[in-house]
């Protein structure tokens, strides 16, 4: 039973650790951790229960993280990157990058190419999710968040 929760705790602590490493403001650290954990949950869900594969799972997860980060940024009145940089950390394809490097060292070119492509595609998917989200929020912001006047204090 406990085993199933390990990845969630791990992504929570990994995100908080990076938030501290990047000197995020102290009161935003736990919210960032929750954002990172949610991102991992979405990623894991789509990877396990659908046929979408790594690219789409990471893209959807980073889109989801970005939504949470946008809402948090408005709540705390801070730029989105304070939340989104730590928040996407669990999704970053560090494992694939390492496996590619190891395959290269071992002279296994085919495997290196496979994991290299995966690294490239997954980081592209993360960036795509974030960019799509910020474009979306720029479009809907005037209607949903500041309906009367578009000026922020």
């Amino acid at each position: 039973m406990f085993e199933q929760f390990i990845p969630f705790l791990a992504s929570f602590f990994a995100t908080m650790g990076f938030a501290i490493l990047y000197n995020a403001p102290a009161r935003t650290i736990i919210p960032s951790g929750i954002a990172g954990m949610t991102g991992w949950f979405i990623f894991d869900y789509f990877l396990t229960f659908s046929e979408l594969g790594n690219f789409f799972a990471s893209g959807i997860a980073s889109f989801g993280v970005a939504i949470i980060c946008q809402l948090l940024a408005r709540q705390f009145r801070m730029p989105v990157i304070v939340f989104s940089i730590p928040g996407i950390i669990p999704l970053v394809p560090g494992g694939a990058a390492y496996t590619m490097m190891r395959a290269l060292v071992e002279g296994n070119g085919e495997m290196a190419l496979h994991f290299g492509t995966q690294t490239f595609l997954v980081s592209g998917a993360i960036a795509l999710g974030l960019s799509l989200n910020s474009a979306l929020f720029q479009i809907i912001q005037p209607y949903f968040f500041y309906p009367r006047n578009n000026k922020r204090p």
Binding site: F13, I20, L21, N23
Partner: peptide
Amino acid sequence: FFSETQRLIAVSIACGSFSLLF
């Protein structure tokens, strides 16, 4: 801001968590 020691501890725990995550 966070001191060097605090950041070191934080990044260590993050590294440990990543090994579980992967």
